[in-house]
């Protein structure tokens, strides 16, 4: 059993992780935590740095859930990355965080959560911050 969660170091990312941990614990599943960036811009605050990754790892270890962290720049969107991990590992559940966006924001930016919801082959749990 595998649960995939898209993690970002923001409130919605934290609450996604929180729910993913509970789901994984309940299902006795392995938790795959994905944090990536396309590396498009010089600065990407959604890509966790070493300090944040260490905190994350500590938290995962403390939770006692079987886990794995996928972290790095592979030139793909976060949504593509999450979907491809879910496909390759035959995930039973994907957990994503959603943040509130204005209508204009939705139009211009699109969203990682939206793409995952539309394109995933397995159930998706969308969590609001």
């Amino acid at each position: 059993m595998n649960v995939v969660v898209g993690y970002v170091p923001t409130p919605e990312g934290e609450s996604a992780l929180h729910h993913a941990l509970e789901e994984a614990r309940g299902r006795k599943a392995r938790l795959l935590v994905v944090n990536t960036s396309r590396g498009d811009a010089l600065v990407d605050e959604r890509f966790a740095d070493e300090g944040q990754m260490n905190l994350l790892r500590d938290r995962l270890t403390a939770s006692g859930v079987d886990h794995e962290v996928i972290h790095g720049i592979h030139g793909r969107d976060a949504s593509e990355e999450i979907l491809s991990v879910a496909r390759d590992r035959r995930a039973d559940l994907i957990v994503v965080g959603l943040r509130r966006r204005s209508p204009v924001g939705k139009l211009i930016l699109g969203s990682t959560g939206q793409r995952v919801l539309l394109e995933a082959d397995c159930p998706v749990l969308a969590v609001k911050s």
Partner: peptide, 11 residues
């Protein structure tokens, strides 16, 4: 240059 948001780019 690697952007993959054709619709947003077109706008």
């Amino acid at each position: 240059l690697g952007s993959r948001h054709p619709v947003r780019d077109a706008g």
